[in-house]
Amino acid sequence: MNYQFDFHFLTGNFGALWEGLKVTLQLALVSNVVGLILGFGLCLLTLNRWFFIRWPAQLFIEFFRCTPALLQIVWFFYCLPMLFNVFIDPITMGVLALGLNLTAFNAEAYRAGVQAVPREHLDACVALGLRPWQRTLYVILPQALRTALPVLMTNGISILQQSALVAIVAVADLMYVGKSIATEAYRPLETYSLIALIYFALSLPIAQLVQWLERRQDTALAR
């Protein structure tokens, strides 16, 4: 390989990359807020004792789990406006697609957390005279959140990576800006490597934090 690396051309594009990064962060953060809140609501619906509440919630989850994220984004951008005759700005649309996708995955994480609460704890709540809502609030939720936290965070990182998919529908995120610069400068190797490095640098600390949390939970259980 005798390729001559040249990163100098990138100095003129820092501004554009920064703008792209801001869009990416915005997509990832807002999607996570949506996913964390709606995900818990959806989880409660899937655990509802009534079939007609449980069933649509489960269908929603399966829809997002069993279709490609890329397809979901494309569908939201092209089909939703056609169906409902609404035109929402691209970033909001991206947040909607990514956020609902994350909602489905987070709901499953929460559900696993709720189901990991030992049955005996529910009995103990009855024995202590706690009402059902007190049981949910003081005993089930805190334990479920703890169990679910590593998975919720991993889902959060993965939505940061998935957010790059919105570049395909011309949302000017980091990936999209990178693609433009690479094409203009004929320097795909340097550009994409730098972009990869940025995604990596954003995700690694969170991934490390997840590992640390899991180790801590393991030692707590081992005691």
């Binding site: 030992p118 005996e120 009995d123 103990a124 005279g129 805190p142 334990q143 703890r146 707590a220």
Partner: peptide, 15 residues
Amino acid sequence: TQVGMVFQHYTLFPH
């Protein structure tokens, strides 16, 4: 509420 119970398995809330 005037009945108290202790179980076979540990039921202290770990959090």
